[in-house]
């Protein structure tokens, strides 16, 4: 959406707010310190507003509206803590928790506590609650796709496609609860259009797509986010000037991301920037091993 100098005034939870025209309700809430859970929204992607965890109540609107995608309008009256809003957010979190593995979605755990979501109240022994059950797809040395962690937020599809990479190696296939992120005919990634930019990893909120390094370290219990540092620097592989965030643990690079607010990358990288660091510390010959 286009942000202009014209401002609009609205009311959020009884407080008067003025924001530039085109500002999303999500940003308007943030501007007065109201935190909103999000899942499918990212600042470097076009909102697809599918997760519905950021819904708010707008007076006069029959259904709740996704705050990430709806622009603030003059005289809007918005509620973010009404019973309907709390109920919907709680239910969305319960639905996801009851059907997918959210063990690596640390942000969601906080919100689940906040809304007292109880994913365990679904299903009974006679009719268990259906879950997404998928084996991790380990098809190369760079990515692992573990789709029982997938909440179908569409972010990876957007990053692979229209919003950044324009490679379209993955898309949503199937319908309804059977929808999955997939290559054509579920072909293995190395045989697909994938160019391993890792932009899907960069936007995945649940660890459904992750670095093989992270996957391997987690497998042996050696993934320790609390003892990791993040250093911002500049990629060396061409002259474009992409900023890299090097995630390091024990003086080793373990993961690379890019800041979503950087005007060159918007958080997106190519295969060289994302994975090309390994020569700095080749695992077999590094004296640090």
């Amino acid at each position: 959406m286009t942000i202009t100098e014209v401002s609009v005034s609205l009311t959020i939870n009884g407080r008067a707010v003025s924001v530039p025209q085109g500002t999303s309700l999500l940003a308007a809430c943030e501007s007065i310190g109201i935190e909103t859970p999000t899942l499918c929204w990212a600042e470097n992607l076009t909102p697809v507003n599918v997760c519905r965890v950021c819904v708010v109540e707008v007076e006069g609107s029959r259904a709740l509206v996704p705050s990430c995608a709806r622009a603030a309008e003059e005289n809007m009256v918005v509620h973010t803590e009404s019973p309907r809003v709390r109920h919907s957010r709680k239910m969305v979190l319960e639905f996801l928790g009851s059907s997918t593995d959210l063990s690596q979605a640390s942000d969601l755990a906080v919100w689940m506590r906040h809304y007292q979501a109880d994913p365990n109240r679904y299903g009974q022994t006679d009719v268990p609650a259906e879950r997404i059950v998928e084996e991790p797809k380990v098809q190369d040395d760079l990515y692992v796709r573990d789709y029982d962690k997938c909440v179908l937020c569409y972010k990876c599809v957007e990053a692979c496609g229209d919003d950044a990479q324009h490679t379209y190696a993955i898309a949503v296939s199937g319908r309804g609860f059977n929808s999955r992120i997939s290559t054509e005919f579920d072909t293995v990634l190395p045989d697909s259009a994938c160019v391993y930019c890792g932009n899907c990893i960069g936007v995945c909120p649940t660890g459904a797509i992750q670095f093989k390094t992270e996957f391997d370290m987690r497998a042996v219990g050696d993934w320790r986010p609390e003892s990791q540092d993040v250093t911002t620097t500049v990629c060396s592989f061409c002259g474009v000037g992409c900023n890299l965030e090097l995630h390091t643990q024990d003086n080793k690079i373990v993961k690379v991301t890019s800041p979503a607010d950087h005007s060159v990358t918007h958080g997106h990288l190519c295969i060289k920037g994302r994975f090309g660091w390994q020569y700095v510390q080749p695992p077999t010959v590094s004296p640090r091993d």
């Binding site: 250093t231 500049v234 474009v240 003086n251």
Partner: peptide, 28 residues
């Protein structure tokens, strides 16, 4: 390694000067 082990600046194609920073220490 300049971009991963050193402090300094680089200048990109569009004359953009940006900082590089050491994330790991050089080996040996």
């Amino acid at each position: 390694v300049g971009w991963a082990e050193s402090e300094g600046t680089v200048t990109s194609s569009e004359r953009r000067v940006q900082r590089v920073r050491p994330a790991v220490s050089p080996p040996g």
